[in-house]
Amino acid sequence: MLSNRWFSTTALVLLVAVAACVEAFAQGGTANFTVNDVTIDVSASDAVQAREQGIQEARRKAAAMLVERMVPAEDRARIPAPDDVRLQSMVRAVEFVRERSAPGRYIATLNVVFSPGLVKAWLGEGGVRTTETVQRPALVIPLWKGPAGVEPLDDRNAWREAWRTLDTASSAVPVTLIRGDQLDQNAVSAEQAYVGDVSALARLTERYRTPVIVVAIVEGDKESGPLTVGGLRYDAQTGARSEIAKETVPAAAQLPDAAKRIHARLDEQWRSMATVRRDSQDSLDVIVPIRALGDWVQIRQRLGAVPAVRSVVVRTLEADRADLRLEYFGTPEELQRILALAGLTLDRDADKWRLQAR
């Protein structure tokens, strides 16, 4: 029979390993401001000139998207318009995701990486308050369940088309549509996705490299209606699984609006946690009570999902508690609110702060 001493020692070794993971993860945030999936389509006298103009247009478009992400709507008019020379100096890199050239035309999807210091100096000239909403990409699996059952992943229907044409690039939750090819079908079946089989959905996060999967479900007859729209959201990082509230639409013609509403709710939910005030930064020493290894793993996962937490330093670690230093953006009150949204309770016990899962 294994002794309690053996169990405590083994658990402590595992906790140390997990502690190293959380510190590395929390400190692994990028130092740059990146705007992903900037799409351009430019025509010019020749392909070379079209490409040059396209890259410049991508810089302009990315700057506008960055302003939408970082500046409240009422303050945006106060920001001075940057000329092309200044834009070029603010951009550290342009990453080419996809590009296609034709005679006199350039079509591409680019990621634009900005220098934080130069961006803050530019925005500061307008005297505006700045925040940053960290994006949380999601993979969308649109499913249609009709009288005969759940349609295949690659079924081409009005619901899939509604998500394909939805523009989410500048939102807090940009979405990628599942391809539904053979590799996807090998990873998960339509039925597994419909019931929210977590192990099957997790296989897709490895392929698409998105931390969130949204299974968007329509139920009803494609021809007659009415239709019921709903689904579920699965977070591979935290393991959280939540339902998307159902609603009724009269017919397939209204599905694009239903997709917009679902995405708007997802976007709003994530923004409540992901909007970070980088002009205010502080640190906090906290105690994490540990009753079982799962407690620490759960807290580690949830802390890693909070953009306001800049870094986590494990100061001491024992079998029944961990002492952490949290470096974070914002105020202690803002940190408490955001951690609560992530399922964590931060409260003060006498002169010490205590952090635990709710």
Rank of each mutant, 00 (worst) to 15 (best):
R310S: 11
R310C: 02
D282M: 08
R277L: 01
R302C: 01
R315F: 01
V313A: 02
V286G: 07
T331N: 06
P307Q: 04
S311D: 02
L317E: 06
Y328M: 13
H263C: 06
R261F: 01
A274K: 03
R291T: 03
G294C: 00
Q269E: 10
L284C: 10
I262S: 14
L266C: 05
L324I: 09
T316G: 06
D282L: 13
F329G: 07
R325H: 01
L335A: 08
R261E: 07
Q301M: 02
D267M: 04
E333M: 04
E333Q: 14
T316V: 06
L326S: 00
E318M: 07
E327I: 00
L266S: 09
V286H: 12
Q336H: 01
R302K: 12
L293V: 10
P332G: 06
Q298W: 06
L303S: 12
L324R: 09
R310Q: 14
R337G: 06
D282P: 08
A319S: 14
K260Q: 11
Q298S: 14
R261A: 13
Q281E: 14
R291C: 02
R337D: 13
R325E: 11
G294F: 07
T316R: 14
R265V: 15
P307H: 06
W296D: 01
L324W: 15
R265P: 02
R261P: 02
S280K: 14
D257L: 11
D257R: 11
R271Y: 06
Q301C: 00
L284G: 10
E334Q: 10
D295S: 03
P289F: 04
T331A: 08
R265K: 15
D323C: 01
D267N: 15
V313H: 09
E333W: 05
V312L: 03
K260C: 02
V312F: 13
E318Q: 14
P256Y: 07
E334G: 11
S272P: 00
G330Y: 08
Q281N: 06
R302H: 05
W270R: 13
V276H: 11
E333L: 09
L255F: 02
Q269G: 10
L335R: 12
E334V: 02
E318C: 05
S272Y: 04
L326E: 13
P307M: 00
A259I: 04
E318N: 12
R321D: 04
R321G: 02
E268K: 13
S283C: 06
I290N: 12
T275Y: 02
P289H: 05
